[in-house]
Simulated scan of single mutants.
Amino acid sequence: MSGPASGRLAADAAELTACVADALARRQHGDGFWREFALQPGASECWCTAWIAWCLAHASPTPVLRHALQQATRALLGCARPQGWGYNRGTGCDADSTAWTLLLLATAAPAQARAAVPVLLRYVDPAGDAHTFDEPRFGDWCGAHAEVTAVALLALRAAGCPPSTLAPLRAALCARAPVPFWWETPAYGHAWRAVALAGTGGVPSTVLEELDTWLLAQGGQDASVFDHALQLLALASIAPRHAELAAWHAHRLLAAATCAGWPGSCSLLVPPQGQGGNNDLPRGPHRDDGTMTSALALAALARWHRNLPAAA
């Protein structure tokens, strides 16, 4: 896709992201949190708020959006615990929620992000793998998960950690393709692996070959908004490679959108804990009400649009 058609697509993406950002900002609760997922431990507060706010930070700032991000930052700083942040204030802290919070703090409160780096590093083993939980009572949830390692690497880089701190996480991500654990779709692991590696020194050729094979196999296939957004994030991280495919995913997202965003299509899993864990929560996949999906799609479109040639 090139010429006038590409220019129209880019203009439509810019207009839509501004409209959706405003709509999502207005969904924020009065205490500064967004809330998603109706699971037995309650709705998510900390995790989803950090995710949504970080994604919204990709949009052009408006007074409404700036206020929403300030409120989210204040809410998250107010519920920090010695072990970091968790799914909500009543659940155990975990590496993923902590990493997403650091990503947001790095854009909104850099000093607090730097101060929280040791909290996130407690979940990272010497080989560079991030463990979602670090308490034995969580069983298999304490395992090393590439889906979490990628976000942890992004967060540590955003917080200003030196290459020596990032190197083990990069090596862990390069060593093997991600296997889904927390998400039904492999797109989550592939996308954040690509984004994290691209943002910390580049995607090695071996990983790029794996990513090419996976992305091209998905191209042209109908998928959820969540999957289209994740594939577009991956493609934006290796731009201008596969520019036509990236434009196709952007077009699919625009075609499915309204100014209020997109319907929920996150595919969160709650795996059995095993090894003495006792959770009996429904495995899922669990869907969001649309706020997290919409925030992610907004961020994907914004990153794709940022990489387009100036003439587009």
Results as ranks from 00 to 15, higher is better:
Ala111Ser: 15
Thr206His: 07
Pro136Gln: 06
Val179Cys: 02
Ala223Gly: 12
Thr206Val: 04
Ala194Glu: 01
Pro118Lys: 03
Leu233Cys: 14
Arg170Met: 01
Asp222Val: 15
Gly86Val: 02
Pro61Met: 10
Tyr123Glu: 04
Ala255Lys: 12
Ala310Asn: 14
Arg193Trp: 01
Glu244Met: 05
Cys79Val: 11
Ala75Leu: 08
Leu166Gly: 03
Ala256Tyr: 00
Ala239Arg: 07
Ala18Gln: 09
Leu245Arg: 12
Asp288Val: 06
Arg283Met: 14
Pro63Tyr: 01
Arg287Ala: 15
Val117Arg: 14
Ala116Glu: 08
Pro163Cys: 11
Ala247Cys: 09
Gly189Met: 09
Ala23Met: 04
Gly199Gln: 14
Ala250Phe: 12
Phe33Cys: 06
Cys79Tyr: 01
Leu254Cys: 08
Arg66Cys: 00
Ser164Arg: 03
Gly201Ala: 06
Gly220Ser: 02
Gly42Gln: 09
Trp248Met: 06
Arg8Ala: 13
Pro285Met: 12
Ala13Gln: 09
Gly284Met: 04
Trp248Gly: 05
Pro82Asn: 04
Ala171Asp: 08
Gly264Cys: 03
Glu244His: 14
Trp304Thr: 07
His145Lys: 07
Pro136Leu: 10
Ala18Cys: 05
Arg170Gln: 11
Thr49Ile: 00
Arg27Glu: 13
Thr149Ser: 15
Trp85Glu: 02
Pro271Glu: 06
Ala247Ser: 14
Ser60Asn: 10
Gly92Thr: 03
Leu208Ser: 13
Ala25Cys: 06
Ala158Pro: 00
Thr91Lys: 11
Leu24Glu: 02
Ala297Ser: 14
Arg306Ile: 11
Pro118Cys: 05
Leu197Ile: 03
Leu230Trp: 03
Leu216Cys: 13
Arg241Asn: 09
Pro41Thr: 05
Asn278Met: 09
Ala116Ser: 10
Cys161Pro: 02
Trp304Val: 10
Tyr87Trp: 13
Thr107Trp: 14
Phe138Leu: 05
Ala10Asn: 11
Ser6Met: 13
Trp248Thr: 13
Leu298Lys: 03
Asp125Ala: 04
Ala194Leu: 12
Ala23Ser: 15
Ala53Ile: 11
His29Trp: 12
Leu65Val: 05
Arg157Met: 06
Cys259Pro: 12
Leu65Ala: 07
Cys174His: 00
Ala167Leu: 10
Gln83Tyr: 04
Ala146Val: 04
Asp12Phe: 02
Cys19Lys: 15
Glu147Leu: 10
Pro63Trp: 06
Leu281Ser: 08
Val195Arg: 00
Gly7Lys: 13
Ala310Lys: 13
Arg306Met: 04
Leu254Ile: 06
Leu298His: 05
His228Thr: 02
Arg8Ile: 12
Cys46Glu: 15
Ala246Pro: 08
Ser44Lys: 05
Met292Glu: 15
Gly290Thr: 08
His249Leu: 01
Leu232Val: 00
Pro41His: 12
Arg137Lys: 13
Val179Tyr: 09
Leu235Glu: 06
Glu45Asp: 14
Val119Ile: 11
Gly90Met: 11
Leu16Asp: 06
Ala257Met: 08
Gly7His: 13
Gly201Thr: 01
Ala50Ile: 05
Tyr87Cys: 01
Asp31Ala: 10
Arg89Gly: 07
Arg157His: 15
Arg74Gln: 11
Ala257Lys: 01
Ala11Gln: 14
Ser2Tyr: 11
Asp94Phe: 00
Ala175Lys: 14
Tyr87Leu: 01
